[in-house]
């Protein structure tokens, strides 16, 4: 019953279409301006006091980043996935470090690994990487293999480091799908 209550409440308050993903998981997508009010509403009105995770996905085909905020209610193990999409050009998201203390960590990681800016977020810029000069490494248009070949020296004799995807298709005689060929790193 409670999942239905939450879905109805989200629909009535914000006019959002939420759906049940699994038994106790609710998924709801929205515009990026609505994320902060929805998270606050869930935290204060419905008792989702814990932020599980903030993850970022690079949908390079649609030219968007997808941010997923996962909040959790400990009483009945209920989870809500709050999703939003932002443009890859000049990506910006609202700074929400005051909502949960550990939001800082996730925001620092996303800013460093995907290059998403949070205006007003004043944490140090370097988090995991040191002296990084390329584009953020978790973006899919970052050429990892090329960077590795440019920067590091591999020991001779390591000839088995070829593309696994290509190896499997050639061994089984199967045709490489178009999307795989298009975004293959080789």
């Amino acid at each position: 019953m409670t999942t239905q209550d939450i879905i109805r409440a989200l629909n009535e308050t914000f006019e959002l279409k939420a759906e049940v993903l699994h038994g106790n998981q609710i998924r709801v997508s929205m515009h990026k301006k609505q994320v902060a009010p929805v998270l606050l509403y869930l935290k204060n009105q419905w008792g989702f006091i814990h932020l599980d995770h903030v993850s970022c996905v690079d949908w390079i085909e649609e030219n968007v980043f997808e941010l997923v905020y996962i909040v959790y209610r400990p009483q009945d193990q209920l989870t809500v996935l709050v999703k939003t999409k932002i443009h890859r050009e000049h990506p910006e998201m609202e700074n929400m470090e005051g909502f949960w203390p550990h939001m800082r960590t996730y925001q620092r990681e996303i800013r460093e690994m995907f290059g998403i800016e949070f205006p007003g977020f004043e944490a140090p810029r370097e988090f995991i990487l040191e002296g990084w000069e390329e584009i953020p490494p978790m973006r899919r248009d970052f050429d990892t293999r090329g960077y590795v070949k440019r920067t590091y020296t591999t020991r001779p004799g390591r000839e088995d480091a070829w593309s696994v995807r290509e190896y499997i298709t050639r061994r089984t005689g199967e045709k490489l799908p178009d999307f795989a060929r298009k975004y293959s790193r080789d």
Partner: peptide, 12 residues
Amino acid sequence: FDSYNTIKALDR
């Protein structure tokens, strides 16, 4: 072997 952030051979 193809990570952007780890070295490949220590004796370099």
